[in-house]
Amino acid sequence: MNEQDAKRRRSERPVKKKKDAALTAPKKLKLLFTVVDRKKAELYADLLSEYSVNLQIVLAGEGTAKTETLRLLGLDDTERAMIVSVIRDDKAPAIFEMLGEKFESVRGGKGIAWSVPMTSAVGVAIYQFLSDYREGQLPPQGQTKGGNGK
């Protein structure tokens, strides 16, 4: 058997296709800011932690609404908490839906939340932590390189 025959046989071999699951793009991340009454901070932090949120920072803040407005509404308390959470892009719709519903239904739990897209994160382990990476859920390490896979 000469070299040309060997080459031809190699080219005729069926090519093994990679599994589709391995081609899934990494999840993008967002920074979610939730401003609520300070007494309700723990409640909202707990609610958010149910949505694959691994990192949350609760900051003590103050609202700036005018005193007259507050007095009219019976809301003299200006103490607020700002919860900064790193969320996954694919979880955002569910999180916003949950927050919208809770802002309406929880007594004294009115608040506001918004998200800012994150453009990069450095380190595979950091990305896996922030995106709540679990074995088999996301592509292998090599494909998560470069942060959020933008």
């Binding site: 916003f96 802002f103 506001i112 918004w114 998200s115 800012v116």
Partner: peptide, 10 residues
């Protein structure tokens, strides 16, 4: 300023 892509509670 930072771009905000989603808001709830306004």
């Amino acid at each position: 300023s930072l771009p905000v892509d989603q808001v709830v509670g306004l």
